[in-house]
Design a protein around this nucleic acid. Structure first.
Length: 265
DNA sequence: AAGGAGTACAACCGCAGATGC
DNA sequence: GGCATCTGCGGTTGTACTCCT
């Protein structure tokens, strides 16, 4: 007995999101939160699957996201965490503020994996690919690499010494070192974070916040400006946090403000 | 300049766990 | 306990872009 599809596939649009769709989604979530993702597209006037809306929001539209490549410190932290947690991208992402699991996963697959292979380290086990070669050859592979690459290498050597475990995923629970190290890494990270990069999404947010001055979601936005902590709670700001009485009052046109040209050009 | 190869990243898909009835 | 539904996660794919020949 198969599951129902999460949405009516015939009605649902796929592929890249348009600026107009982005704005609808942002406006809707700022105004109402997300009651349940399945209902969001309908209520927001989007012909998208709820899943797609959730993904778009969490991976791209959330205002607390950082943009741009991961810094060296972030990369080191990802490698460190990966050596302990394995491919648990959501857990890794939770330790990198402003980064998403998808982003980290992509970065791992495109950058870090290759970097580790280049260093002679198995990106899955974080063990040297050829132990004999590394023991015979006094010059570690890291010596041929940049400072940041050497940092990675040292971090991995440190980790493999500290966790004398066969699999990186076996040491997840009850590891006091883990939380301590993660905190240490967080401190390291916080000293080396890049400032946010201006982006199209920022422009989108600017346009929305100017719209917000004339609408009823300025409250949500102001709390957003204070800090992004409301977003951390956003997992929960469902029906119990937001009144949905207003939903019927939302005119689709009201969500379609004219400032969306940014992305379309 | 053309086009093939490589790269980066957004988005989709399917599965599994959590939850409610 | 069984089933339906929702959500989140990880793997994979699609596509736009860049680089190289």
């Amino acid at each position: 007995m198969g599951r129902q599809p999460c949405c009516d596939k015939l009605e649902v649009k796929k592929g890249p999101w348009t600026a107009e769709e982005d704005k609808k989604l942002i406006s809707f979530i700022l105004t109402n939160g997300h009651c349940c993702w399945r209902a969001v597209p309908k209520l927001a006037g989007l012909r998208r699957c709820g899943k797609s809306c959730r993904l778009r929001w969490t991976n791209y539209l959330r205002p607390d996201l950082k943009r741009g490549l991961l810094t060296d410190a972030e990369e080191n932290l990802v490698i460190d965490l990966h050596s302990r947690l394995g491919n648990r991208w959501s857990m890794i992402a939770a330790k990198l503020p402003g980064r998403t699991d998808n982003e980290i996963k992509n970065h791992w697959n495109t950058h870090i994996k290759k970097k580790l292979l280049k260093m002679g380290i198995d990106p899955v086990t974080h063990e040297p690919l050829n132990k004999e070669a590394t023991s015979q050859d006094n010059s570690s592979p890291a010596e041929h690499l940049s400072q940041s690459d050497r940092d990675h290498h040292q971090l991995i050597v440190h980790n493999s010494k500290e966790n004398s475990i066969s699999s990186p995923t076996e040491n997840i629970c009850g590891d006091e070192h883990l939380s301590q190290d993660i905190n240490r890494s967080d401190d390291l990270l916080s000293n080396d974070l890049r400032p946010d990069e201006t982006s199209l999404v920022d422009a989108l947010w600017e346009s929305i916040s100017s719209d917000a001055q004339n609408t009823n979601y300025d409250l949500a936005l102001s709390s957003c400006e204070d800090s992004s902590s409301w977003l951390l709670d956003s997992q929960d700001f469902g029906v119990h946090d937001f009144s949905f009485n207003c939903i019927n009052e939302i005119e689709p046109q009201a969500l379609q403000t004219p400032a969306m040209e940014v992305k379309e050009h």
